[in-house]
């Protein structure tokens, strides 16, 4: 049962990443990222079984990534009255094509990594790499600050999958740190969103790149 779930979960996670890359609706993107967060919160339990540490990691991730942060994002969307369209620097189809290439590259690359023997040919590492790639792509290609926050969240999801793999040998502090910096990042982003909105009356990050006196 655990084995089958470990087979299925990576595909659900990666496909959700593709969906976020191809979707044009912000709300659907936020929901997909929330679902992805909820799914990856199963990883510690699946990898290490029902133990105190794994349970805490899972519970924390489910609460933060699956519920709290998405709700905050949705609230930010409501408050700032962000339209549902997402602007992309390159088209949605090219983004998706690049995303698939990155994911495929992650799978090929993971095989060449000097991993512990039991992690060879497991799907955990390539999934983490592919998810991180998706997150990077989102940050690079999207123009609106909120979608870039989404990209950052997807990136964090990838890092979390990695962390889940090694949470046995690393102290729980590291994991707590991951969750915490995620939360802090979203807070900061929220404040930045507010500032950008007030200064430029748009969430487009393009004006930020222009130097002015």
């Amino acid at each position: 049962m655990t084995e089958q779930l470990l087979q299925l979960l990576p595909f659900a996670v990666i496909l959700l990443g593709f969906y976020v890359l191809a979707s044009q609706r912000l709300r659907a993107c936020v929901e997909a990222v929330a679902l992805q967060g909820a799914l990856i919160s199963c990883y510690p339990l699946l990898l290490h079984g029902f133990e105190g540490q794994a349970l805490m990691l899972s519970g924390g991730a489910l609460l933060l990534k699956g519920i709290v942060i998405p709700l905050m994002l949705l609230r930010a969307m409501r408050k700032l009255q962000i339209e549902r369209e997402i602007e992309s620097l390159i088209g949605f189809i090219p983004t998706l094509v690049v995303g698939v290439v990155v994911a495929a590259g992650a799978f090929l690359f993971a095989d060449t990594l000097p991993l512990a023997l039991e992690h060879h040919h497991s799907l955990v590492v390539p999934t983490a790499l592919a998810t991180m790639g998706c997150g990077f792509l989102l940050i690079i290609t999207r123009r609106k600050a909120l979608t870039q926050v989404l990209g950052y969240l997807v990136l964090e999801n990838g890092i979390y999958i990695f962390g889940a793999l090694i949470s046995k040998v690393l102290p729980a502090m590291v994991e707590a740190g991951v969750l915490l910096d995620l939360l802090v990042a979203v807070f900061i982003m929220g404040i930045v969103l507010h500032q950008i909105k007030r200064e430029f009356s748009t969430l487009d990050t393009q004006p930020l790149t222009e130097l002015k006196e």
Partner: peptide, 21 residues
């Protein structure tokens, strides 16, 4: 429509890469 068709083709391409690795 092209987005749908290309997207579904990409799914198959991804699957193909998975079994080729």
């Amino acid at each position: 429509v092209p987005a749908l068709l290309i997207g579904s083709g990409l799914l198959a391409a991804f699957g193909l890469i998975l079994i080729l690795r």
